[in-house]
């Protein structure tokens, strides 16, 4: 390949191996120093980052459920065990590290394979669940997200579902709160990297409030439109978003009947981000409806026997 030339026709200069080695060493040195610095910062901050994230989630869960002192929240983590074709649920009192963990294992067809409640547990299944029930993070399983079940005075009061969707740049992580009839109470965006001033607007109260009050069937049929949001609806949504607990504003309730079958109004200039969150909420609610039909008898059965 000695006839290689520069674009301008000049002969290619001979590369001096010493110079190349010097450049390579220089780059290796810079990257090594950078890696050490970043690794050091990560090790030093990782624990605090996780704590900050958990604290943020905790305040989001209690804020979205808006319950008083007596509420009892159970955290349910869901894992897929692909080789065994099973789905595992680990249920535990939320925020109480020393609380006992209950485990339910379902086959992909929805049949109960094992439960630490003991009703249907086979011998091998029970031994296995007892073993894994004590470990915080089951190894080798694919995490499928979490959900939180809230009870007040023994009665089912609501849910918070964790969901994820692929946004314009990176994943969007969000919570969806449902009431006991599975209608949406609220949506909160936990993490996203959409562009400030454009896609980031999906995290604003008015955009998120569009999901509230819709039933699971209405959510399943939900679309996204680029039409501008009607001004009266915008005003009603912002009144709804700033109302703290209690009764929803009257103007919102009247307009909700007109809007509940209408699509989500996309953020101007950010249709992709708007669609991403809508798709995520739809998927999360739909998945939960089917999941809850299996899970409810297990969680409820135990609650009743206590």
């Amino acid at each position: 390949m000695s006839d290689l030339v520069h674009i301008d026709g000049a002969p290619r200069p001979k590369a001096d191996p010493k110079v190349i080695a010097g450049i390579a060493m220089n780059l290796v040195l810079v990257c090594a120093v950078s890696a050490i610095v970043l690794g050091g910062v990560y090790v030093g901050t990782e624990r605090y980052q996780r704590e900050a994230r958990l604290a943020g989630e905790r305040s989001a869960v209690s804020g979205m459920l808006a319950f008083g002192e007596g509420a009892e929240v159970t955290e349910v983590r869901q894992y897929l065990d692909a080789p065994k074709r099973e789905v595992r649920y680990l249920a535990k009192e939320y925020g109480n590290e020393s609380a006992p963990t209950r485990e339910f294992v379902f086959g992909l067809d929805g049949s109960l394979h094992a439960s630490t409640a003991g009703a249907v547990a086979s011998a091998s299944g029970a031994a296995e669940s007892a073993e894994s029930a004590n470990t915080a993070e089951p190894a080798g399983l694919e995490e499928l997200g979490r959900l939180f079940v809230a009870k007040q005075g023994g009665a089912l009061a609501g849910f918070v579902l964790e969901g994820e969707s692929r946004g314009y740049k990176n994943r969007i992580r969000f919570f969806v709160a449902l009431d006991s009839s599975l209608a949406v109470k609220g949506v909160r965006v936990l993490e996203h990297e959409e562009d400030p001033g454009l896609g980031a607007e999906i995290a604003t109260p008015v955009f998120r409030a569009q999901f509230s009050g819709r039933t699971p069937d209405e959510i399943a049929a939900l679309g996204v439109t680029r039409d501008p949001m009607p001004e009266d609806w915008h005003a009603a949504l912002s009144a709804f978003a700033s109302s703290t607990g209690g009764e929803a504003p009257a103007e919102w309730r009247t307009l909700m009947d007109r809007e509940r079958t209408k699509p989500i109004y996309a953020v101007t200039g950010a249709t992709i981000s708007s669609r991403a969150l809508t798709r995520g909420v739809k998927g999360t609610v739909d998945h939960f409806r089917r999941r809850w039909a299996l899970l409810a008898p297990q969680l409820e059965g135990e609650g009743a026997s206590r």
Binding site: N26, L27, V30, S34, V41, T45, Q49, A52
Partner: peptide, 26 residues
């Protein structure tokens, strides 16, 4: 190789600031 090195330096500072803020000032 100064330009790639500058890019690495900027990226290191950005990532370090990002992690530190996420940890201590959520």
């Amino acid at each position: 190789v100064r330009i790639p090195v500058y890019t690495i330096i900027i990226a290191v500072w950005v990532s370090a600031i990002d992690m530190t803020l996420a940890a201590f000032t959520p």
